[in-house]
Amino acid sequence: MEKDKYFAFDTKAIHGGYNGRNPDNALNPPIFQTSTFTFESIEHADDVMNFKSSDYVYTRGNNPTLRLFENRMSCLEEGAGAVAFSSGMAAISSVLFSLLKPNDNIILHRTLYGSTFSVAKNLLPKYGIQSKIIDLRNLDLLKESIDDNTKVIYFETPCNPNLEIIDIKGVCSIAKNKNIKVVVDNTFASPYFQRPLTLGADVVVHSATKYICGHGDVVGGVAISKDLDYINYLKFEYMCEFGGVLSPFNAWLLLRGLKTLGVRMRQHEKNAISVAKFLKNHKKVKSVYYPGFEDNEGYKIAKDQMYGFGGMVSFEVQGGLEVAKKIVNSLKLIKISVSLGDCETLIEIPSMITHRGYPGDKLLDYGFSKDLIRISVGLEDEADIIYDLKNALDKI
């Protein structure tokens, strides 16, 4: 759609990236539930295989439903193109392998999603790629850590699970002078609250399972870039060859989820602010981590580079891990889960679940404690969420 760039976010989330009319004038796009496409002739097949035609060959390479999802995500992140993947980790690992080769090294922020940390620490070294894990909030330390073999800087912001904020512009400014690629995981913010490509990042990745879907019924991932040549390289040299293709049905569900992304993110944030304030004022709560608080270390940067502060809240209680477990186990409405970004409010203790791959005796070096509790604040009535938390805290 030519006018995509002039539309507001909520409009683009519904209409962006589509130039045509659905078959039989259907309001919603169909699911092209097919593995294979046919050709009119051998010459037609040759044109498609040589990219002289934008027609389709095989769903592992592309599919109309996947293409629409990719186009819409590119529109929302203000990129030139996107590649859909079967999971967030398929997107992350494929992007990293596409940008790195043996003897290269990558610099990562100290706090990452547990599986991303495992890729950096355990998988990449098997292929001769070394990882440097540092505190990327310290830009001077970043400058000192770069060497001639540094090819990628990778981070999340806000970070999982401590919600640390990384200065995207600051990191990109340093990287650009060294011809280093910057990859940002934007899962926690979603494109509604943050667009790293507009701040200088080279690639943005998402676990689309989370806020993009929003309903807990899809596993998927996506990578977006302003460099269309890179997107084609990532799609055909890595996604296709590694085989981490998203199914057409899941792409259709993600398109459905995107229609309400803005509405949902506004409510997630509204509820999260109320929950964070409640926790901050509770005498049994030791610390609350939410980037929307003015006394949060990353507040000024978040306010500058984000359009809102998101729906994730982390906190610690007086009494340590055993008390934290008792609180989580006492909840009734809020569910214990590894995921986030769903309509339901979800809670976990990262050191025991999503981040258990981190060395337990060095968690503080990586930015979070063993008793940190992470909440993905959902769309229930905020009073009900707070009531459930209050009852659990009262049992300490």
Rank of each mutant, 00 (worst) to 15 (best):
V219S: 04
L389T: 02
V204F: 03
I107R: 05
N105F: 12
A272N: 12
L279Y: 07
Q267H: 02
K277V: 07
L364K: 14
V57H: 08
K12A: 12
I133L: 07
P359V: 05
P64T: 04
V57E: 05
K226C: 06
C159S: 15
K326H: 15
S314R: 09
Y289R: 10
N122C: 06
Y289V: 11
D167L: 02
E322C: 09
K325L: 07
Y358A: 01
G61I: 12
G360P: 09
V218Q: 04
E241L: 12
I168W: 12
L100P: 14
N71I: 00
C213R: 05
F7P: 10
I385H: 07
Y299S: 10
P29D: 01
G360D: 09
M89C: 12
P64R: 02
K52T: 04
G378W: 01
Y358S: 01
S93K: 05
T150D: 03
I92D: 13
L379P: 01
H44T: 00
P125E: 09
A276D: 15
M306Y: 11
F69P: 06
S337P: 03
T59G: 01
D202C: 13
F193W: 06
K12L: 15
L228S: 11
G81F: 08
T116W: 10
I146H: 00
L279K: 08
Y366G: 00
P158Q: 00
L136Q: 06
L197P: 10
M306E: 03
C343A: 10
K303M: 03
N22Q: 14
D185N: 07
S274V: 06
A276F: 09
G81Q: 01
C172N: 11
D227Y: 15
F278P: 05
E2R: 08
F155W: 02
A201I: 14
D295A: 12
H215W: 08
Y58G: 00
F188T: 05
N186K: 09
P102H: 15
L346E: 02
L142P: 15
I385A: 02
K335S: 08
R110E: 13
L108H: 03
Y211N: 13
V183E: 02
I231G: 06
I107A: 02
L123I: 14
V275W: 10
I373W: 05
N28M: 15
E348R: 11
F85G: 01
K326I: 01
F242A: 13
K332C: 06
G311W: 03
